[in-house]
Design a protein around this nucleic acid. Structure first.
Lengths: 125, 125, 125, 125
DNA sequence: GTGGTCTAGACCACA
DNA sequence: GTGGTCTAGACCACT
């Protein structure tokens, strides 16, 4: 996953979101060491302070913890990660259903369309 | 539906999208007269020229047509409307599936979660 | 080619047409950088916004594309240009034949007259 | 043929042109009586004085003549009509060739395209 | 009153 | 410097 920083939202928020995805999707698995702030900042092309803020947010959310001398690590509490993953998923699902309802699709229709698409994709990927 | 203009994308694009939704969802049914430019602009709290641009876009897309002095009307070509509705739906579905895949959900899992949510909602609405 | 803005049709339309001719006739070849909006506007003696609208139309038609900060360029898709060239030619031919028919000339007579003229011109140019 | 008065050129000029077409195309044949000024003016939706000016122009060109008490008539000099017809045709042909040259078509190419179109039309009409 | 056009001038993001 | 967006306000044609 590459960084795709846009100007519309605060940068640190976008960083937080991206890092969260890396954790809940297992790119950074439980207990793994996270790259150094400077490294992550360089990768994303942002100021280290901005990346620092994003990482602090993740710590506040319990997804990361810091070991003074050795660096930052993904939490070993898989329940915490699963919970976050489901919270985000739930929110995206709600948004999606609501946006489809805006177009005049009932939940049933949306479900049917999505099933079709998922099956079609399933053949390819 | 109220206007909810944010600053992240061009206003005229958001207007275009909102008006499109009104049409494909049947709020503005085929053949119906659309409120005057100045009226819509006032409703959305934008400059009439900005609303004009959004309406011009819809005209280009074949969703509206203009009668010189009597106003703008939704196309009577229901096929065009249906087509647009499905194009948008398809795009939203793809985006949704892709965003769920980012979180590490397969299409099957996404489908299962969405089914649960839709059913739960179904009880309420 | 100089600009020759008359008052009967919207200026932006005339600009669109003139720019299209520059492209399909190769004055602005495929991939070439188009002068800046403000420059073209000055050349034509119109407001930059008016020129902007004309350029936006060409972009919509796929004859131009924009690179955010470096300027506008003619499409490299020569097929698109050829297609546009032929569309315009076809339309002019139809108009011409129809206007000659107004004068009571059949297509055959028109063809004969045009052949004569073309041959005569051929000697000169 | 209906009147299609636009605002870009003097109205009387457009009237002159339209009437000339009616004569050279034989809608008003040699020697025929032309409708009364008031009638023509009403038909075109213009002031009788404006139509009068157009008719005066045609008289100056030798396409019409007036008989004091009985009205205006198309000239019986068919040579004059033919000459006018060819003058106009020649001008339209030049304009057409020039406009095609603007698009980058040589006279030969234009000729070829027009031949194709004329033949195709020939089948239908 | 309707929509359409045009201008002048401002501000923004990007690099 | 580039293009993009938005506003405010004017004028036009049509009916």
């Amino acid at each position: 996953m590459m960084w795709n920083i846009t100007s519309d939202r605060p940068i640190y928020q976008q960083l937080t979101e991206g890092l969260t995805e890396r954790i809940v999707s297992g790119i950074y698995p439980p207990g793994a060491k996270v790259p150094a702030v400077r490294e992550l900042a360089a990768e994303a092309g942002v100021n280290p302070n901005t990346m620092q803020r994003a990482l602090a947010d993740l710590e506040r959310d319990g997804l990361l913890y810091t070991q003074r001398t050795s660096g930052r690590f993904v939490t070993e509490d898989e329940g915490r990660i699963t919970q976050m993953r489901e919270t985000i998923a739930k929110s995206r699902i709600e948004d999606f259903l609501s946006s489809m309802r805006q177009l005049g699709f009932t939940s049933e229709e949306t479900l049917r369309l999505l099933t079709q698409t998922a099956n079609r994709k399933g053949d390819l990927q």
